[in-house]
C-alpha cells in the first residue's frame, strides 16, 4: 500500500488545522536522506502533502527555526475543521510506515523497502506488517 501525493489545494480542502505526528531533528544524520527530502521539499515549494492509506491527509515541511527551538522536518496530520477529532495512533502508524516505504524507494542505494519491512517485523514496529 502506498501513499498518494496531492496538491496543497486538495489538502486545504480538509482544513488547515494540524497536529504534529512526527519530528525528525536530524534529517542529515545520513546525507543521502537529507538530500532526497530537501530535493522533494524544494520541488513542492517548501511543503509536501500526501494522503495516507487511511485516507488521512498529511503535510511534510521544515520546522520553523527560532532561537532555542527545535529544527528539522515535521509531519503533521490535517484535521477536519471544527469539533474535536481523535485520530487513532495505529491509523497514523500505518500511514507513517507507508511514508517510510516511499522514503526508502526514493533514497535508494543500500536503503531498501525489503530491509525496512524486515526491521519492522523483527522489532514489531506498530504500523509495519507482521511479516516482511
Amino acid at each position: 500500500m502506498a501513499i498518494e501525493w496531492i496538491t496543497r489545494k486538495d489538502a486545504d480542502r480538509i482544513g488547515t488545522r494540524e497536529a504534529q505526528v512526527l519530528i525528525e531533528q536530524s534529517p542529515d544524520h545520513y546525507p543521502e536522506f537529507n538530500a532526497f527530502v530537501q530535493r522533494e521539499l524544494e520541488r513542492g515549494g517548501g511543503s509536501l502533502f500526501f494522503r495516507g492509506i487511511s485516507g488521512m491527509v498529511y503535510r511534510v515541511g521544515t520546522v520553523a527555526e527560532k532561537p532555542g527551538g527545535l529544527r528539522g522536518v515535521e509531519i503533521c496530520v490535517r484535521l477536519a475543521a471544527g469539533g474535536v477529532q481523535r485520530v487513532p495512533g495505529e491509523v497514523i502508524d500505518r500511514d507513517l510506515w507507508a511514508f517510510l516505504g516511499w522514503l526508502m524507494q526514493g533514497v535508494g542505494g543500500e536503503w531498501s523497502l525489503e530491509a525496512l519491512r524486515k526491521v519492522g517485523a523483527i522489532y514489531r514496529v506498530p504500523g509495519a506488517p507482521e511479516r516482511a
Binding site: V21, Q25, P27, D28, D93, L96, L100, A115, G127
Partner: peptide, 28 residues
C-alpha cells in the same frame, strides 16, 4: 549493518520507531 541497526535510527525511521513507538524498550 543496515539491517537492522542502521535502519532503526535512519532519518524519519528513527523518529518513528524510537521517538513515536519506543521500540528499543518495547522490543529491544
Amino acid at each position: 549493518s543496515v539491517m537492522p541497526w542502521r535502519m532503526l535510527h535512519a532519518p524519519f525511521v528513527g523518529a518513528h520507531v524510537f521517538l513515536r513507538r519506543n521500540v528499543l524498550v518495547e522490543r529491544g
